[in-house]
Design a binder for these strands. Structure first.
Lengths: 218, 218
DNA sequence: AAAACAATAGGGCATTTGACGTATTTTACT
DNA sequence: AGTAAAATACGTCAAATGCCCTATTGTTTT
């Protein structure tokens, strides 16, 4: 028997989900919370195995609620429910500590199956969500690439100060702004940048920054 | 009816899976390939909707096979099968273009369900695999910062041409070089860039490129 | 001690860039 | 058919940039 807490700002949906799940004896609903603050409050007296959490909530949304709950009760698993499937929300939810992510239109039997999968250490996701997750991963080719292929600033014989200057350049600062921030004269800043160009074999700020970025110095 | 190609180096497992799936009429096995090279060969004559691909294969492994097949036939969906669930393999598989990832001990009915989910645009994964995927994502916090703020060039009201120009700027080209490449006058290129600055609320090439990069337009 | 390098600072000059105009032609949409 | 938006082009000016040069001071290496 898996004990569950429901968190949603919409009383109607709350009752709805509750009813849908009540016919399954694999799960028991411990409490229904009206929004994030109520959830945090209810968790002082109840200790469910997991939570079904709506993402879109006023005041404190599901992501923030998840973050706080995970901090206080790390062992409670959280499954996000959402009508939307915005990419950034998915990622945010994962970062906040959610272990599952379903769209609200899933059939009750599916939801129960997902609940069980989650309690067994899985990460149930609606098909569309799972795909989005993969897409996010696929876009992060950086991770998969070899760090070996990156060159260190030292391999270009850049001095400490020059690296510092280059960072400012990459931040989009002008000579004068760099000079101000590093307490040197604009002429000196320019000189440094000239030397950097020499070492990197480039001829403009843009190209210098491009080299820095390619090698992941910034 | 979903048509399938099986790719495995082990003839016994090949027959096994084939038999397990044959009792379902949702799927039809078009061919069985003995390893990656055989799969590439068979794809010249058969065109299945998707492939079930073993990861661990001698000569050419499932990842490399997937990469090559995806290059030649991007529309064919590929589900990886593996006895292992090594994190790096998962990521490699995703990067290579796999859309699903199952462990071999799944029940035939689960496999068929996964096949259907995959053809409907989902990304079926065994629970443990899904969890690993989330973990990988969760570890890439760098990405997190960027993902939350993705905006489309259109949301800045950038026109097609302006996006094109911005790409050239990001490539480090000067006004004159951009003008040459796009067969317009340098004056026009400058005007476009001026307009881009307005729309992006920036005041230099460097800043403009920074915005473009933050939003992953380049 | 000498040599090499890093960091600092400046002079001068040609080019590029950014910001402000105006104006014509094409394209798109109603 | 008429209007709005986009793409095209030009002019001007001040500021920023890229590139040449020299020079002083301190640190490190040989």
């Amino acid at each position: 028997m898996i004990t569950i807490g429901l968190v949603d700002d919409n009383p109607t949906l709350l009752r709805n989900i509750s009813q849908n799940l009540s016919i399954f004896d694999e799960v028991e609903i411990l409490f229904k919370a009206n929004g994030g603050f109520d959830a945090l409050d209810k968790l002082n007296n109840h200790h469910p195995d997991m939570l079904l959490m709506d993402i879109e909530m006023p005041e404190m949304d599901g992501i923030e609620t998840t973050r706080r709950i995970k901090e206080l009760f790390p062992s409670i698993k959280i499954m996000m429910l959402s009508v939307l499937d915005r990419e950034d929300k998915i990622f945010e939810a994962i970062k906040a500590g959610a272990s599952g992510y379903l769209t609200k239109d899933e059939k009750p039997s599916k939801i129960v199956a997902a609940i069980e999968e989650l309690m067994e250490g899985g990460a149930p996701m609606s098909p569309a969500i799972a795909m989005k997750t993969l897409q996010i991963l696929r876009n992060q080719e950086i991770i998969g690439q070899k760090i070996e292929s990156y060159l260190s600033p030292e391999s270009y014989n850049l001095s400490k100060r020059e690296i510092e200057i280059l960072e400012k350049v990459a931040a989009g600062l002008t000579y004068n702004q760099i000079a101000d921030q590093l307490f040197i004269s604009a002429k000196t800043a320019r000189k440094h940048i000239e030397n950097i160009y020499q070492k990197l074999q480039v001829h403009s700020k843009l190209e210098a920054v491009a080299v820095a970025q390619k090698n992941k110095w910034v």
